[in-house]
């Protein structure tokens, strides 16, 4: 039982990271109908920005704000440089452009900062607390807390605010939104900014656990992408549940079946969903009428 509780906590912690990155995937997919394969690199870039800001002598909280502002700027540049010029094309060139952008981001960071993995201290001085038989890593606690806050924020923002409703309207039907006076390009710009900040937040939060390296983004993004498919592509709640489920499944799978095949469990679940429920947990079945 103690073992299961420890695994559950770790699984949820890892899953929350996948969920944060998956959220960025979903938001951009809903707004533009394309998958942004540079979402993982957003996490990596933010972690490096954080390291640079901390090394420059900024207090941790100030470095955090600077890194997120940097990510907002990256969201603007990404939208204008990668998505906007291709917005009238089919989804394929845009997806390829995002893959190209992810390679560019990774190699740019490599060229600027070098290949050395970096250590980023966590937000708290205490590494964790022992709660009975379970050790709670303070960084994972923070990640879980932030994920819960973001779920609540997203619900409030998209359901209760005018801007959130405009974003939803844009994602559902751009032409109709435009006819109603909503600036579609502005809404897409805001979506990219928000997604970049979300991805960045995930990177900054997970950096003290996984270290800061060029590869950190791609490793997380692959799982986050699987999480979005399991949850139902395009569904915010699905991304969160999918991410958490994936984290828990792979952690328990590793503990009770096989450690070396840990990644395999995540993708086995993904394949099972693609075969038996391709629309994911929360997705609606799409059928073509004859």
């Amino acid at each position: 039982m103690d073992l299961a509780l420890q695994l559950l906590f770790t699984g949820i912690g890892i899953g929350a990271v996948y969920a944060l990155v998956a959220l960025g995937f979903v938001l951009i997919f809903r707004a533009t109908n394309v998958v942004n394969f540079a979402q993982g690199e957003f996490s990596m870039v933010a972690a490096y920005l954080m390291v640079v800001a901390v090394e420059a002598g900024l207090p941790y909280w100030a470095a955090f704000i600077v890194a997120l502002l940097g990510m907002a700027l990256l969201g603007v540049v990404f939208n204008l440089g990668v998505y906007y010029p291709l917005r009238h094309r089919t989804y394929l060139p845009v997806i390829i452009a995002t893959i190209g952008a992810s390679i560019l981001l990774a190699n740019s960071v490599l060229a600027i900062y070098g290949p050395q993995p970096q250590v980023l201290q966590g937000w708290f001085d205490t590494p964790g607390i022992q709660l009975g038989p379970v050790y709670l890593d303070s960084q994972y606690l923070l990640i879980i807390g932030v994920t819960i806050c973001l779920v609540i924020f997203n619900f409030w923002f998209f359901e209760k605010t005018l801007l959130g409703k405009k974003l939803q309207a844009t994602s559902q039907d751009k032409e109709m939104a435009s006819l109603l006076g909503i600036s579609v390009s502005t809404m897409i710009m805001i979506t990219f900014i928000y997604s970049a900040v979300l991805g960045g937040l995930a990177g900054i939060l997970v950096a003290p656990v996984l270290f800061v390296s060029i590869q950190m983004g791609s490793t997380i993004a692959l799982k986050a992408f699987a999480a979005t498919i399991i949850g139902g592509f395009g569904d915010v709640a699905g991304a969160i549940i999918g991410g958490l489920a994936l984290g828990v499944i792979e952690t328990f799978g590793a503990a009770y079946i096989s450690v070396p095949y840990k990644d395999g469990f995540a993708f086995l679940v993904l394949i099972a969903f693609l075969i038996f429920r391709p629309q994911g947990i929360f997705g609606e079945r799409v059928a073509e009428k004859a």
Binding site: Q6, L7, T10, I14, V209, L210, Q215, T219, I220, T251, A254, A255, V259, P260, Y261, K262, D263
Partner: peptide, 11 residues
Amino acid sequence: GYANQSQDFTP
């Protein structure tokens, strides 16, 4: 055994 580039070693 474990697979390279693991993100978690709790198990």
